[in-house]
Amino acid sequence: MQKINLKDKFSQFTDFWSPKVIGDLGDYQVKVAKFHNQFVWHHHDQEDEFFLVIEGRVAIHVKEKDSEQIYTLNAGEGIVVPRGVEHMPVAEETAHVLLLEPATTLNTGNVVNEKTVKNLKRL
């Protein structure tokens, strides 16, 4: 066991949309990532995701039936995106985000593109 200092973990990288593993909880991983600008629309067939904004603001765009819903998260706020829900995170300014999700979760879900990270770095 060792304590985790989030400020220290976020200071160790500068890239955006590339989650880093900072801990394991059984079959789940605790990850940190920096968000900036727009990600990609995607969903996860098997995994739920928990987003917790540590610093900044993130808008989680969600497609619900025939409409789009936007959930704006400020520092200290989080949201669970259930499996199968099409979503796209957007951060107008740099945001620091903690993620809790199964270890099998691919950051871009059902989409594979230049933002896909298959082998996550551990901090």
Rank of each mutant, 00 (worst) to 15 (best):
H96W: 13
H96K: 13
E64I: 14
D45N: 13
N74H: 12
V58K: 07
G76Y: 04
V40T: 15
G78Y: 00
H36M: 13
V81L: 08
V62Q: 11
I60N: 09
V81S: 03
I79E: 02
K63C: 01
D27W: 00
K63T: 08
G78K: 01
N37G: 10
F51S: 05
Q46P: 03
W41M: 14
P89E: 06
E86W: 13
V58W: 07
L100S: 03
H61A: 15
L25M: 14
A95E: 06
L25S: 09
F50T: 12
Y28A: 01
T72G: 05
I54F: 10
F35T: 02
V80Y: 05
V32H: 06
A91K: 00
R83G: 08
Q29Y: 00
H87I: 05
V90F: 12
R57E: 15
A33R: 03
E77T: 11
G76K: 03
Q69W: 06
K31M: 10
P19L: 05
F39W: 09
E49C: 03
A75P: 00
E64W: 08
G76P: 01
E93V: 10
K34I: 06
D48L: 05
I70K: 14
N74R: 08
Q38N: 13
I60E: 09
Q46S: 14
Q38G: 06
L98E: 08
V53C: 11
I22H: 00
G26E: 00
A95K: 03
V81A: 05
I70P: 00
M88F: 04
Q38S: 14
M88V: 07
E47G: 05
K34E: 03
G56A: 10
T94Y: 00
Q29L: 00
H36V: 09
G26M: 01
V40C: 12
